[in-house]
Nucleic acid binder design. Structure first.
Length: 104
DNA sequence: CGAGTGACCGCAA
DNA sequence: ATTGCGGCCACTC
């Protein structure tokens, strides 16, 4: 296990905290906004061992697929997302519709 | 500096 | 469409 803990983590924190309810972002997207478009894995590490107070449930794969290692698996992830108002279809969200970008 | 890890991403069979 | 493999980056030992 590896626990990220530097500015990259803080960057991810800020981005995730900005995700409005009912919207989702992809790991690659967040990584790109942090300046590392290929560091999606790092974002995943932060998500797993990062601040649990952040809405990681709004972070999904590039295809809109749910996170693999989410507590309770995709099942728990799906329920939390629906609780936020996000319609989940077959453990997948309408990524093209719900994908959110930070206001410039 | 070298090796290992990870809630990913993209391409090939 | 599904499955498998590698590569990528940041971080730890």
């Amino acid at each position: 296990m590896k626990k990220p803990s530097n500015k990259f983590k803080e960057q991810v924190y800020k981005l995730v905290a900005q995700i409005p309810k009912g919207r989702v972002m992809t790991y690659g997207q967040i990584a790109a906004l942090c300046g590392q478009p290929r560091a999606a894995r790092i974002v995943g590490g932060v998500a797993h061992w990062g601040d649990e107070s952040l809405p990681w449930q709004r972070v999904v794969h590039k295809d809109g697929k749910l996170a693999t290692g989410f507590p309770g698996g995709v099942e728990g992830h799906r329920q939390v997302l629906e609780a936020e108002g996000v319609k989940v279809k077959d453990y997948q969200v309408d990524i093209e519709k719900l994908l959110w970008w930070p206001q410039k």
